[in-house]
């Protein structure tokens, strides 16, 4: 299934815009980048089902909308369920002869980490198990940013949030990030991928593959958040790149059981480079940074063993 990637350089990116500028996302927010490129891949024959979250509130404030495609906002927990309904309705309309059976309609569920890892997990699991042809795109900013930076199941260990304070008792979040893409993979989902906005062609290729998949697909995108991660707005993409270069984040795909790391890292950088750029990790001691480095080392070891060769290289700085 792999073959040559469809999007290779910036010149392959379509000119057509289906996600308009002028929305109210924070300056430097990378969620806008993700949504914009997502719709460039999907095109006009697309229905977006959007969970409550940053993207939802800031792209549809009256009297404006950024969405030039049909768009549905549901409650917090039911994106996958509502998307299942939309997809089923299209099948029914085709069966009834109301809709041309050859028309291809992309159904995209778009949700943040809170709406996916936590409150939306049940609906997501149901959608995957029933096998609806929906691409679920998770933009992961690792906390409930829309309600004011509360921890979520996605918040990484040691990160400060307003509900994982740093003080004498707590040192930020004390639990690990939930492995959501692996959980989705375990459902036997035909296409599961992780990406980030720095590797935008990688991300777009994954959106394309997801939309072409017969059955459910899941693309998990890291979305650095200037407000919640506490970094200067201009560093969003740089932090996204550092996430890959330090292997804090690994871009991989599981395409019908074929596992591949799509962005290889020959020389890996120390996690310090990624962590020290973010205010949410500013309280970390050198020892805690090394603890994180150790867990990344283990993760890299496992990934290399899984792939059968060194796709993520040794730590060099």
């Amino acid at each position: 299934m792999s073959g040559k990637p469809f999007f290779r350089t910036i010149f392959d990116v379509p000119h057509e815009e289906y996600f308009s500028p002028g929305h109210g996302l924070c300056a430097g927010c990378t969620a806008g980048t993700i949504a914009k490129l997502l719709l460039k891949v999907a095109g006009p024959n697309t229905i977006v089902v959007n969970a409550t979250g940053c993207v939802e509130v800031s792209t549809t404030t009256y009297p404006y909308t950024s969405w030039n495609v049909p768009w549905l906002h549901v409650a917090f927990e039911n994106t996958a369920a509502a998307a299942s309904g939309v997809e089923s309705a299209i099948i029914a309309l085709k069966k009834k002869g109301i809709m041309d059976p050859s028309t291809k309609v992309n159904v995209i569920a778009l949700a943040g980490d809170g709406g996916t890892y936590d409150i939306g997990l049940q609906a997501l699991s149901g959608m995957l198990e029933r096998g609806h042809r929906v691409m679920y795109v998770l933009y992961d900013n690792e906390a409930y940013m829309n309600t004011g930076i509360q921890r979520s199941g996605s918040t990484p260990e040691f990160a400060w949030t307003t509900t994982t304070p740093v003080g004498s008792q707590w040192k930020g979040k004390m639990q690990q990030k939930k492995p959501i893409a692996e959980i989705v993979s375990a459902h036997g989902t035909p296409y599961v991928a992780t990406s980030n906005p720095n590797n935008f062609t990688d991300m777009m290729n994954k959106f394309k593959k997801g939309l072409e998949t017969e059955g459910p697909s899941f693309v998990h995108v890291l979305q650095p958040c200037t407000t919640g991660w506490k970094f200067d707005p201009r560093y969003g993409i740089e932090i996204s790149r550092l996430a890959t270069e330090t292997a804090m984040w690994i871009n991989w795909e599981n395409d019908h059981g074929e596992f591949r790391v799509t962005v290889t890292v020959p020389r890996r950088r120390h996690v310090r480079n990624y962590l020290r750029m973010q205010g949410r990790f500013s309280h970390l001691t050198e020892q805690e940074v090394n603890e994180i480095q150790d867990s990344v080392n283990k993760k890299v070891e496992n990934i290399n063993r899984l792939v059968g060769k060194t796709v993520i290289g040794p730590l060099v700085e």
Binding site: T147, G148, Q150, T162, T163, T164, W170
Partner: peptide, 14 residues
């Protein structure tokens, strides 16, 4: 669970 306008209660409680 975070929800506006009650989230400060959770934040303060934490």
């Amino acid at each position: 669970y975070p929800i506006t306008p009650s989230s400060e209660i959770a934040e303060e409680m934490s």
